[in-house]
Simulated scan of single mutants.
Amino acid sequence: MNCLICVRAAERIECDGPWEERDCPECGRYRVADALILTLMEQGQIFDVSKTRSWLDSRRKNGNVPSIEIHQALLLP
């Protein structure tokens, strides 16, 4: 399985709800909403890797697995 952020090899984690969860050696553990994944695919968009990693790191401080929803996404044209 691949990381949804940097596309490197990552472990897929089973989770409940409309999410894809990954554990990437570079990006860490995170969830991405299915709706966001579909939007990215439809629009041919990708994550800004460094900005997304920074955002995820800031969200991990509370101890929870960060979740990226469509309204939080950092997209590149």
Rank of each mutant, 00 (worst) to 15 (best):
Q45R: 15
G28S: 03
W19Q: 04
A33T: 00
V49R: 08
I68N: 08
S54M: 11
G17L: 02
K51F: 07
M41G: 09
I37W: 06
E26F: 03
G17W: 02
R12Y: 10
V32I: 07
Q43N: 10
G17R: 01
V65C: 12
E42P: 01
L74K: 14
C15H: 08
Q45H: 12
I46H: 10
D23C: 05
R53L: 05
E14D: 14
D23F: 01
E42N: 07
I13Y: 07
I70T: 14
L40V: 00
I46P: 05
A73E: 13
V32H: 05
E14K: 11
F47H: 09
P25Y: 01
I13A: 08
S50M: 10
R29L: 00
L56S: 09
H71G: 13
R12A: 13
D16K: 12
K61L: 13
A9K: 15
P66I: 04
P25A: 04
P18C: 01
I68T: 07
R31I: 03
P25S: 05
R60D: 08
L4K: 12
R8G: 12
D48G: 06
G63Y: 06
L56F: 07
R29Y: 01
W55P: 04
Y30W: 02
L76C: 12
I68M: 09
C15F: 05
Q72A: 14
F47W: 05
E26Q: 06
W55V: 02
R22H: 06
G17F: 01
L76S: 12
G17I: 02
G44C: 00
D34W: 08
K51D: 14
A9E: 15
L74E: 13
V7Y: 14
M1R: 12
L38N: 09
E69C: 11
L75W: 10
G28T: 01
R8N: 14
W19V: 01
Q45T: 03
S50Q: 14
C6Y: 06
V49F: 07
G63H: 07
E69L: 12
E21A: 08
R59H: 12
E21Q: 13
W55M: 15
L56C: 08
I37D: 08
I37K: 10
D48I: 00
C24A: 03
E20R: 11
E42R: 07
V7M: 13
M41L: 11
I46R: 11
V65D: 09
A33Y: 02
A73H: 10
G44D: 04
D57L: 09
L75R: 15
T52V: 05
S67Y: 11
E21H: 02
M1A: 14
R22A: 00
R60V: 02
C6M: 09
R53I: 03
E21L: 03
I70K: 14
W19S: 03
R8Q: 14
C15N: 10
L38A: 13
Q45S: 09
L36D: 02
E42G: 02
R22C: 00
A35D: 12
F47E: 04
Y30C: 01
M41W: 09
Q45Y: 06
P77K: 13
D57F: 06
C3F: 05
E20F: 10
D16S: 13
R22D: 04
R31K: 11
E26D: 11
W19T: 02
R59P: 06
L76Q: 13
